[in-house]
Amino acid sequence: MRSTRTLTRRVAVSAASAVAALVLAACGGDGDSSGSDSGSTAAAGSASASASAGAAAGAHNAQDVSFAQGMIPHHRQALEMARLATGRASSAQVEALAARVEKAQEPEIRTMSGWLTSWGEDVPTSSGSMAESMPGMDHSGSGMPGMMAASDMAALKKASGKDFDAMFLTMMVDHHKGAVDMATAEKKKGAYAPATSLADDIVAAQTAEITDMNKLLGNG
């Protein structure tokens, strides 16, 4: 009988110990879970902060929109001028310069059009002449410096040989100077990093081309 009672006591003690161990384990588990939740919350907060920082880095302002909407038609007119060189220019150097303009500015137009589309802004139309794409605007006195008037473009289309070379270079120097002015304004006031970077590229490339064209004109 005594043996039976002793065995019963031992079983009870063992059961109590097991219950206590389970309780302690549960408490420890709750602590770990809390720590895990806290870590998850911190990670989520960090991700949110990173996303906010990324959004801020990609923010754009009115200057960025104005730059893209102005530079697209400006580039398109430069392409229109450059394509006239084929069959009209007498100088291989003028033809090479026109090819450089076309190669550089076509991709830039696509890039800026993509920005405007992603921002929900209007992309200047590409059909027809500059006058048709931006009706009612006198391009020679518009907000886009360096734009040629319709009469200038008509005269360039009629020219050929050395006359074309001289007219093309003179007009393109003015056109490039206007683009440099617009890009410089973007560098100073723009907020969208890709746009200010493109503006920097435009200033560097077109300033170099202005130097080259002035040399061909005998001005440098």
Rank of each mutant, 00 (worst) to 15 (best):
M1P: 10
T4H: 12
R9F: 06
R9G: 00
R10C: 03
V11Q: 14
A15P: 00
A15G: 04
A15Y: 00
A16P: 01
L24R: 11
A25E: 01
C27H: 09
D30F: 13
G31F: 10
S36H: 14
S46Y: 10
G54I: 11
A57W: 03
G58T: 14
G58D: 14
A62T: 13
Q63S: 15
V65I: 15
S66I: 00
A68T: 02
G70C: 02
G70S: 10
M71F: 08
I72N: 07
I72H: 07
P73S: 13
H74N: 10
H74S: 09
R76D: 06
Q77L: 08
E80Q: 12
T86Q: 14
T86E: 15
T86N: 12
A89T: 07
A92W: 00
Q93W: 00
E95L: 13
A96R: 13
L97H: 07
A98R: 05
A99R: 14
V101L: 11
Q105S: 03
P107Q: 09
P107C: 08
M112T: 03
M112K: 06
W115V: 01
T117F: 08
S118D: 08
D122Q: 14
P124D: 03
S126D: 10
S126L: 01
M130C: 07
M130N: 11
E132C: 06
S133M: 11
G136S: 04
D138V: 05
G143I: 00
M144L: 08
M144C: 11
P145H: 13
P145S: 15
G146K: 04
M148L: 14
A149S: 14
S151Y: 05
M153R: 05
L156G: 04
K157W: 01
K158R: 13
F168N: 05
V173P: 08
H175P: 05
H175E: 02
H176R: 09
G178T: 07
V180H: 08
V180W: 04
V180D: 04
D181E: 15
M182R: 03
A183D: 02
T184N: 10
A185K: 11
E186V: 10
K188A: 15
A191Q: 13
T196F: 04
S197N: 14
A199V: 07
D200P: 00
D201T: 15
I202C: 10
I202F: 08
I202P: 06
V203N: 08
Q206T: 06
T207M: 01
I210T: 09
I210H: 06
D212L: 02
D212Y: 01
N214V: 00
L217Y: 05
